[in-house]
Simulated assay, not measured.
Amino acid sequence: MPLAASLFCLVVAIGDGDTLTVRCGAPGTYTQVRVRVAAIDAPELRQAFGQKSRQNLARLCFRQNAALQWLDEDSYGRKVANVRCNGTDVASAQLRAGLAWVYAPYAQHHPHLAPLQHQARSSGAGLWSQKRPQAPWDYRRRHAR
């Protein structure tokens, strides 16, 4: 699928709070694609709030049509995309609920996200209710195999 293309696909699986699998195409010629939600990083599944983040993404998107705007491909081969489910911007919803961090290296084109994280942090929403929440990139570095 070309980058910067937009299309509608059915969400068929949720990996974690920032990764989902979609089925795109016409009946009989479906393609499944793993998608990373652009500009956010959700807690790992074994990390505090990892399961809640995944559950919230499932509530927003599972078995729903998702509007996807392809932006890039990451080092794991996932397509990186802006994702909307039922008209809701998924990155914004995950941040608003306190279930993801803004991923600064890839958020330069998403300036609307930082204030949402700040608001969630100020109100103690989700992972921000912890005394010292650990960013997923720090968690991954400390728990590398």
Rank of each mutant, 00 (worst) to 15 (best):
L60N: 05
Q119K: 11
P43W: 11
L68W: 06
R36G: 01
G126A: 11
M1K: 07
T88D: 07
V11D: 09
V12C: 09
D18Y: 02
L127P: 00
V33N: 01
S92W: 00
P111S: 11
Y103H: 14
T29L: 13
P2M: 06
G124W: 08
T31A: 14
G126Y: 06
R132V: 04
C24L: 01
S75L: 13
F62Y: 13
H110S: 14
H143N: 15
Q117G: 01
L20Y: 06
G77P: 03
K79G: 01
R78D: 05
S122F: 05
S75Q: 14
C85V: 00
S122T: 07
Y106D: 03
H109L: 14
A104Y: 14
L113P: 02
L60Q: 13
S75H: 14
G15Y: 07
C61M: 08
K52L: 10
L3S: 08
T31G: 07
Q55S: 14
V11E: 06
V12N: 09
A66T: 02
G17H: 10
H112W: 10
P2T: 07
G77I: 02
S122L: 13
G126R: 09
T19F: 01
A13H: 12
R121G: 00
N82T: 03
G126V: 03
P111Y: 07
A5E: 14
